[in-house]
Design a binder for these strands. Structure first.
Lengths: 223, 223
DNA sequence: TATCATAAAATTGGATACAATCTACAATAT
DNA sequence: ATATTGTAGATTGTATCCAATTTTATGATA
């Protein structure tokens, strides 16, 4: 486990930096589910005292990414297959609704932004960036929904399964299919067909869920 | 502003106690939106150092209930009418879906629990308890949805608007209508009519939203 | 009196040190 | 050999102190 905190903006507090670094490390899988995080080890790693480390861990816990037990330490929470499935199901419900709202307010400038985000995602080769670029595309469309609370919750759900999403995209055909489905959603938005965009978004999410879960179950049964 | 932390379980850490006490104080309106919370004032109030106070505030901030600016202090975040409206809309979507799942697994024991919760809510006279009893009723039904993540998010949304919900229930006819609508939802569950339960739940939430927003706008325009 | 510079007070973020408690392992008794 | 107990180490929670910066009070000057 190694961290690189230099890529985060310097204006933030130490707790912010540690929070972001840990979050990213959990997303990439650099910190695995179940791994024990000790406060003084992290403090030494980031050259700080345990105080900002504790604050970062507390925030991660509030997000559900870790769990702290007194005198026992902090562990990265793992998700069962059922939990992963449920979160995808939740996303399908929520994001389907969000894009319905968005299509009703869709304008050409927004579609341009989304198109560029779609291209950027499709041509990216660094798998570490898949997650952010995927969000960029969807959020470009969702922005016009003008539902900030809904989007905050979508974001939170994505955070919870970000590491799984990244794993899914590097599966065989994961990127290829995501790229194709993104184009379909974009096309529905261009046609201002809200129902179609919503349906394709739900399919996109549930399809990714199905292939990911198939992978997870195969992996688990192999162990 | 005064706090009473004696009703929280003693096994928790000081930070836990402060977190709960502040949360409850925000819910009841004891701490009003926009109010400044100073760390050392809170520390003195709870007879602790600022460390657990900071941790509690950090958690509240993660939940969106307060906002901290360095050297400026922490303020309780207020919600605009639009934000309140959106959160009710979000709840209608989510809770409608949750109860649909729940009805499919509904059994008589669950209905009994819900019926008792419904009675407890209807007969309660202490308005401070409305919030919890209202949740008790709905959660009694939602439990059978077996969607823990969905419920966690519902809970979070309720937290965000808890103080508004309590205000709504003490409005003229607020309790009376809530009681009547609860009975309707319960009846639909008894009939195992998932679509009807979902629709009544959505109506229940959106109806409360409408009357609350009417009240908020009248109050705001009066100022 | 009004305005601007300067100092004092206030306030949060972090470091160090201490307290409380759990875990692991070894010593001891049965 | 096994169970029990005690002690040392590990680990988190909190108190106290310091640093950094903003806000506010103060006073000098035009």
């Amino acid at each position: 486990m190694k961290f690189n905190a230099t890529n985060v903006r310097a204006s933030a507090s130490a707790a912010d930096l540690i929070f972001e670094a840990l979050r990213e490390a959990i997303f990439t899988g650099e910190i695995e589910a179940g791994e024990h995080l000790r406060q003084d080890a992290l403090a030494e790693m980031f050259n700080t005292s345990r105080i900002p480390v504790r604050e970062a861990l507390s925030r991660l816990e509030q997000q559900g990414l870790v769990k702290t037990e007194r005198y026992r330490g902090t562990t990265v929470t793992s998700l069962s297959v059922d939990e992963v499935r449920e979160i995808f199901e939740f996303r399908a419900l929520l994001e389907g609704e969000v894009i319905r709202y968005a299509v009703e307010n869709m304008d050409d400038a927004t579609l341009d932004v989304a198109r560029r985000a779609c291209d950027a995602f499709a041509t990216e080769t660094d798998s570490a960036k898949y997650g952010d670029l995927n969000r960029d595309f969807h959020y470009a469309l969702y922005a016009k929904a003008e539902r900030p609370y809904h989007l905050k919750i979508v974001n939170q759900a994505l955070d919870r399964i970000e590491s799984y999403l990244r794993a899914q995209l590097v599966l065989t055909n994961g990127m290829e299919r995501a790229r194709r489905e993104h184009l379909g959603i974009l096309e529905a938005c261009v046609e201002r067909d809200a129902a179609k965009a919503a349906q394709l978004t739900r399919d996109h999410i549930l399809g990714a869920s199905a292939s990911l879960i198939q992978f997870l179950e195969k992996r688990d049964s192999a162990k």
